[in-house]
Simulated scan of single mutants.
Amino acid sequence: MKNSIIVLAFLLCSLSVFAQTQALKPGNTAAIEAKLIELALANPAMKVRDYERAKTVSELNKASASWLNYVTASANLNAVTLKIVDQNELGTQLYYPLWNVGINVPLGSLIGKGSDVKIARRNLDIATAQQEIARRQITAMVLAKFRDYQKNKALLELQQEATEEDQAAFEQAEAKYSASSITYDEYNVASKRYKDGQARIITLERDIAVSKLEVEEIIGVKLEDVINAK
């Protein structure tokens, strides 16, 4: 029975180590980060930049086409063309041409329209640059927050191991102090080290929770769903 328990414990430890190793593999981390970036780029703040650029595209198209509004056509109609008077009745008094058609294009309007189009193009360039800046910023932000999360988790594991050792040392010091085999100062040193370790664990747990929330705010889903995705 004892041998079975030992084997079971060994297998559980092996599985735990294997799972941690898999989670820390660069390939897994790269896949997680790629998914985080994909989700981050669907963030509403990023969509605002996309909408702003689409708006400037529409404004440019409108400015490019609106020059037609400045073009006016005119036609001079007379009694003959309107068939009010017969041409034969007028005889030599008929003036040519019977039709007088023209197109008027104000030069000042055309010059101003060129400036409007240039402004619209610059606005599109600005919107495109702002969109790219936002993409880079949100990508850097989500990766930085995720790496803070990873760092704090690794530090927490190390601190928990150290604190377990400090706890064992404190319990020994407590027993020795009760037996009057060590001084109060020695007991106090062990107690303080153990309590400091506990305080660092609390701080790291808080930092992990905050960095996790910050990542989730950007990606819009639970971080565990991304990490545990197949």
Rank of each mutant, 00 (worst) to 15 (best):
S211L: 06
F146I: 00
A140I: 01
V80R: 15
I84C: 03
S4D: 14
F170N: 09
K2T: 14
M1I: 10
N123S: 07
A154Q: 12
D125F: 03
V71T: 04
G220L: 12
F18N: 13
K118I: 02
L156Y: 08
D207V: 00
V215K: 07
N76R: 15
R193G: 00
T81W: 11
L77V: 09
K113L: 04
K151R: 13
A168V: 13
W99N: 11
Y194T: 02
A127D: 12
G220E: 11
N152A: 07
K35F: 09
N123R: 14
L155S: 09
E89M: 12
E186Q: 13
K118S: 07
E205Y: 05
F146A: 05
L24V: 03
M46D: 00
Q167G: 01
A162C: 03
Y149T: 00
E174W: 04
K230G: 10
A179Y: 05
G102D: 12
R147E: 14
T203V: 08
V85Q: 13
R193M: 03
I6T: 11
N78F: 04
T139S: 15
A179W: 00
L12W: 08
Y51S: 12
A127Q: 11
E33C: 03
I227Y: 01
A40T: 04
V7W: 00
L223W: 04
Y96M: 14
M1A: 12
D50H: 09
S74G: 14
A45Y: 02
A30V: 05
I182G: 08
A54Y: 07
P106W: 06
Y194F: 10
L11H: 02
Q131C: 02
G112C: 03
E165V: 10
Q172D: 08
E38Y: 11
M46K: 00
Q159C: 02
A127T: 03
M46R: 01
L143E: 13
E214W: 05
K113R: 15
V226H: 02
N78Q: 09
W67M: 06
T139W: 10
K153H: 05
E165Y: 12
T81P: 11
K151C: 01
